[in-house]
Design a protein around this nucleic acid. Structure first.
Lengths: 245, 245
DNA sequence: CGTTTCAATATGTATATACATAATCGTCAT
DNA sequence: ATGACGATTATGTATATACATATTGAAACG
């Protein structure tokens, strides 16, 4: 017999099989939260493999949050999975073009200023500094599709100060330039006030979907953006399959 | 010198350090998409460690999608990250209790019927069959917090037919019983109609956040639920870090 | 009875090694 | 040129081993 077991009949590696066996037990409810799963040495015997192989599977399950491991005590099924879903946030241009409509961006306002207290709160900045405040409209055909209100931290993205953003949206511009390491989204419903209703050509008080995003690059706040969609124009879609395969 | 290197001064393991060093290079833009990162044997030399240790770091980066690995060719920085965000959808009870308010669920309606065409469209069913239609209110203190409209496919969850759901919400009940393998969410804004406004004790036409979820268990549609939140009562939050830390 | 100490135990990380597998490159024959 | 083929190379998976570390449980001690 060769040193390396080749039970690899179905094209999946052994640690993957161990991983999915255990995941199955947990997701099916056979092993309830808090249940102690077999020790590494027991699985080693059960699968007739080395501890390293078992360890690889269990480490991955632990990283995914499905199990919790405690030295000397063993590994336990984690508490009810928080219902996390992967939310895809497409570029607005892509969304509009997916509707078969011509896309256009139009700048409404562009102000360079020292950050106000409100600016700093939105960006998550502690010290004052230069910011760029932008407002623009995304069109689908002739109809306004979304209003964008954005702050850019010029201390983090100095080049943005030179850019006019007349008909290119700041989103794509930033993506090409500043790699982001972290982002936070807030999604809510809101009634359009006079200004927003005017820009989006809807009735004041009409419901809107608001998506706010804060972005960091290596600990530095980069931008805060608020997209305001008329209720009819937008639905976010999120698909979810529990824990990676 | 001991067999195991103990450069573990800062409490992070070596493969973790290698991983975050490389991630840093990628996120900072120093290594652009398509750039070939050093071979395992080069990193082995650079960090003065074994190939297994380097491999562990690179495998994790690959699983996270930050790099792409090709046999015989090497490992390459992946293409621009798709803007996916992890959206946490908590149990409503948890959310309410996090606000420090007492939680209560109250059933408004419960109808068992043969699925209508609309029911089948919502659930994603092709053939007719029995369904349970539920409507209920989630309270935070004395105020309505969310209205829930739910369909349960009784062909998939027969036990639900016997349950009254008078003051236990169908969500937690289902989670304990039916493991779900897939879910789809739709999020949008909507104006409250007469019925909804009445139930939530808000003005007709007031903006609401609507979260709809369809759930499958092993290919079978299980349930469709629509949560309707008054705009003030709810903000979805999604945090995102490209590739886990 | 409470506390300290110590051995046992399960996991965490790393090593050196072995073989498998996929892709690429150069060589050689057609 | 072109295509077949084998050598080379980088990654993929697994093994056996070694030592670290946190935590538990029991024994020893005051």
């Amino acid at each position: 017999m060769s040193l390396v077991e080749t039970d690899d009949i179905e094209g999946i590696s052994l640690h993957q099989r161990i991983l999915s066996d255990i995941r199955e037990k947990i997701l099916s409810g056979a092993w309830a939260p808090g249940h102690r799963i077999p020790f590494e040495h027991e699985l080693t015997a059960q699968y007739n493999c080395s501890r390293m192989t078992v360890n690889k599977a269990l480490s991955q399950l632990a990283k995914a949050g499905l199990i919790e491991r405690r030295r000397r005590s063993g590994s336990f099924v984690g508490q009810p999975q928080s219902q996390a879903a992967v939310l895809e946030l497409h570029d607005i241009r892509i969304e509009v073009e997916a509707l078969g409509l011509p896309y256009r961006y139009e700048r409404l306002e562009r102000v360079k200023r020292r950050s106000s207290a409100e600016d700093r709160a939105l960006l998550g900045l502690s010290a004052p500094g230069p910011v760029l405040a932008l407002e623009g409209l995304h069109f689908a055909g002739e109809r306004p599709f979304a209003l964008e209100q954005r702050l850019i931290n010029l201390s983090a993205v100095a080049e943005a100060a030179e850019e006019e953003f007349l008909d290119i949206a700041p989103g794509p511009w930033l993506i090409g330039r500043v790699p982001w390491s972290e982002a936070e989204h807030r999604i809510r419903a809101m009634a359009a006030d006079e200004t927003i209703a005017d820009a989006l050509d809807i009735d004041p008080g009409a419901p809107c979907l608001v998506v706010e995003r804060r972005t960091w690059s290596a600990e530095h706040p980069v931008t805060h953006v608020r997209f305001i969609y008329p209720a009819e124009s937008h639905t976010l879609v999120a698909r979810f399959t529990p824990s990676q395969g």
